[in-house]
Design a protein around this nucleic acid. Structure first.
Lengths: 142, 142
DNA sequence: CCTTGTAACGAGAATCGTTCTCAATAGTAG
DNA sequence: CTACTATTGAGAACGATTCTCGTTACAAGG
């Protein structure tokens, strides 16, 4: 029997610092927009870094569970990820270029809670996302 | 050459009254909750009615484009459909049984428009859905 | 009714995003 | 340096949805 006798380091899953995790974290922190796992994969290998597709999916999923990423689903069913602030907020996403702005809406929170209550619902959560054309894209399409 | 000479009846695609379309319309009008194409398919054949899966998908899609159905995406990626009123509204969906209540929120509409504007976005639309446990399910899980 | 043109069907193949499998690899604590 | 095991990655497996294409059956005209 070796190792696994000291009880100090929390040596569970999800904490090793690997090359591929570093790459993903870096790329996410440079991203302004929501991106899909497939996109991340393509971008990485486009810049010469070799990372398995399964790893991209696994890591993105893990980071989401750890609360490090926000998730969104595109109209055609792809799951999109983005590094966001920790406080509760919503997104204003550009339909054209994907740029995203975090916005908050105290009014919405209250309305959601009240509407749920009014119908006898409990444990009410809400999904609120705004889509539009950002200033730049609006100008470009004019 | 026969037919296709009179110019009165709008005999284009999407208007034939078939057995399968009747079945789907009927089933949808009896549904209180959002349901997936797969569920509709299973339910139909469970009640002895034979309808092709592709037809279910096609019809549901067509009805949606015609504005007869509202669409929602479940957490695991399935597209869910429901027959709803024509006016703009949002949904309060039970996480457990799927029952859905249509709710409106003038406050949200205003907030959304304003938030978009404030950041220079144009053509802003919003996605707002509420999830919770309906009265019955809340009671059951207590 | 019967004919006809063609919208609609349906079975099965094809897509596509995502997840799973499992042997090989590589952090890391001691 | 070594052993332990978390991670990785290639490819198979999945599940929802879409496409293909020969067959079926509305529905308008005769």
């Amino acid at each position: 029997m070796t190792a696994r006798t000291s009880g100090s380091a929390p040596a569970g899953p999800g904490r090793r610092d690997t090359r591929q995790r570093r790459l993903l974290r870096d790329q996410l922190s440079r991203q302004e927009a929501f991106v899909s796992a497939q996109q991340m994969y393509d971008d990485l290998r486009a810049s010469g870094d070799r990372v398995g597709l399964a790893t991209v999916y696994r890591t993105l999923q893990a980071m989401t569970e750890a609360g490090e990423l926000d998730v969104l689903r595109s109209d055609d069913g792809e799951v999109l990820y983005r590094q966001c602030g920790p406080q509760h907020h919503h997104h204003l996403v550009c339909r054209s270029c994907g740029v995203t702005v975090e916005v908050d809406g105290p009014a919405v929170e209250k309305w959601a809670a009240k509407a749920g209550e009014a119908h006898g619902f409990t444990e009410v959560t809400h999904v609120v996302e705004l889509f539009g054309l950002c200033a730049a894209c609006s100008r470009a399409s004019r």
